[in-house]
């Protein structure tokens, strides 16, 4: 809907309608036009600026097909890598003289339920002490086939980090020496950091009024 007064909305899918986290059709404005769209999927093109071009130059000749897209945002560069090539890319990032990302700061998982076919993301932050640089490598896998190759062989520090990501998101890191739960009890069911896993909690009475559990409270997001 574009008029002279209103700028055209970006063609992104609708994240939600209305305000205050109402779950039914309710729109507190009464006009049913409060629409919040999903943030667009970013992709940057050259030049990336800063040292990012040097890193991309050293990485891309051998791995042009492995890097799906590159995002430069807020002074940080992210390489989205195909999961099949992850181990090779990581090894190259660690060993190549122009890259030398010796230190990995571990694995972090993120669950994007609306990204069909790439719901689960594993995010690796790498640091090069030689060149004093930082980059981010991101890998995704579908929820139906939650497998990502393990990088413990390249960065032994990923041992616990991959166990943690498996524990919280259910991403199976193929080739990990002992992929077991690390924070939750061994017999726990479900993976708590996923978006479809409820927070839980009970309502609390405070001065005669009932305060609902955190995930039942009115949300403004």
């Amino acid at each position: 809907m574009t008029t002279e007064n209103l700028p055209g909305l970006p063609e992104e899918p609708v994240a939600r309608k209305g305000m205050f986290g109402v779950k039914d059709s309710g729109d507190t404005s009464g006009y049913n036009r409060l629409v919040v769209r999903r943030p667009p999927k970013l992709s940057s093109s050259r030049p990336y600026g800063s040292y990012f071009d040097d890193v991309a130059d050293a990485l891309e000749p051998a791995f042009a097909d492995a890097v799906e897209r590159v995002v430069v945002d807020r002074g940080e560069i992210t390489f989205h890598v195909r999961r099949e090539r992850l181990t090779e890319v990581m090894r190259h990032l660690r060993d190549d003289a122009a890259l030398r990302f010796e230190l990995s700061l571990g694995v972090s998982g993120v669950h994007y339920p609306e990204e069909t076919g790439a719901e689960l993301h594993a995010v690796y932050h790498l640091c090069s002490i030689t060149h004093n640089r930082r980059i981010r490598v991101e890998v995704s896998c579908p929820d139906a086939d939650p497998h990502i190759p393990s990088t413990v062989q390249v960065y032994p520090t990923h041992d616990w980090h991959e166990r943690e990501t498996y524990d919280f998101f259910g991403i199976v890191f193929d080739g990990h020496p002992a992929l077991t739960r690390i924070e939750m009890p061994d017999d726990w069911e479900g993976h708590p950091q996923r978006k479809d896993y409820p927070l839980g909690g009970i309502p609390v009475e405070y001065r005669g009024a009932e305060v609902p559990a955190p995930d039942r409270r009115r949300s403004y997001s």
Binding site: P39, G106, S108, V110
Partner: peptide, 18 residues
């Protein structure tokens, strides 16, 4: 390290601490 992810809302989408 803090890996902070936002989806544009008033709450963190995901925060991971290294």
């Amino acid at each position: 390290g803090a890996h902070v992810v936002s989806d544009g809302g008033t709450r963190p989408y995901r925060v991971h601490f290294r």
